Simulated assay, not measured.
Amino acid sequence: MKKRDIKHLGNDIAKKQAELKKYLVKDFPRLVANDALQTFDDSWDKQGFTDEKGTFKSWEERKKNDGSKSDSNRGTLIGKGSGILRRSLEAKSITTNKVVIGTPVKYAQAHNEGAEIEQTISITPKMRKFAWAKFYETKKPSWRGLALTKKKEINRTLTIPKRQFMGNSKPLTDKIRKRLDTKMNKLFE
């Protein structure tokens, strides 16, 4: 620890205070935004999210349309690798009081929070032809039923399970606290 002359203590404290204020106003919010973006991006690598209590919740595995499990080498939200949702995360607003991370992708909230979406599907001649082909291939009566239905459209509910990738997170809070503690310790050595 440096020796300080008591005569200059007031000036030293004022300088440290000004330096800390500059850090908290200018640098700290930007660094917090970067930490948040990195933490949320890590959700894709981990295929899950750690909440504010520190509990890791892994994403529910994808299913194929027939209900069987998806290929094990495919990611849950990554699909075939478009990565649109993952790459869309951005700092929407950075102020001294608040950092807002978001995405312009419309379906992000449905994946992050889970959703049930009502759909109306028109049954076209092309769809009937496809249903017959699937029936002959699989021999499942449901395909035959679709091919022969008199309905012009079908109403169904699409359930998207919660696969949280952003929100309040203990690792993020810990990272932010550590960053601030490190700066304070360095500043007031």
Score class of each variant (00 low, 15 high):
75 G>M: 07
93 S>D: 13
83 G>A: 14
54 G>D: 02
78 I>D: 06
67 G>K: 03
94 I>L: 04
86 R>Y: 00
93 S>Y: 09
61 E>P: 13
61 E>I: 15
58 S>P: 05
74 R>D: 13
79 G>C: 03
98 K>S: 08
69 K>R: 13
88 S>F: 06
89 L>T: 00
82 S>G: 09
85 L>D: 00
72 S>W: 11
61 E>S: 15
56 F>E: 13
59 W>K: 02
73 N>V: 15
54 G>L: 04
87 R>P: 03
56 F>I: 09
60 E>D: 10
50 T>D: 06
76 T>D: 08
93 S>F: 07
40 F>R: 03
62 R>S: 14
69 K>V: 13
49 F>P: 01
81 G>P: 04
93 S>T: 14
55 T>H: 01
98 K>L: 06
69 K>H: 11
56 F>M: 13
49 F>V: 06
84 I>R: 03
72 S>Q: 10
66 D>E: 14
94 I>A: 03
59 W>S: 01
74 R>Y: 14
49 F>M: 07
99 V>Q: 02
50 T>P: 08
60 E>A: 05
70 S>V: 03
54 G>H: 05
69 K>Q: 11
68 S>Y: 06
80 K>F: 11
95 T>P: 05
64 K>Y: 15
61 E>K: 15
98 K>R: 13
75 G>K: 09
98 K>P: 00
79 G>I: 01
76 T>I: 11
49 F>I: 07
60 E>S: 08
82 S>E: 10
67 G>R: 04
59 W>P: 01
59 W>C: 00
69 K>Y: 12
98 K>H: 06
93 S>I: 11
57 K>W: 09
44 W>T: 12
55 T>D: 05
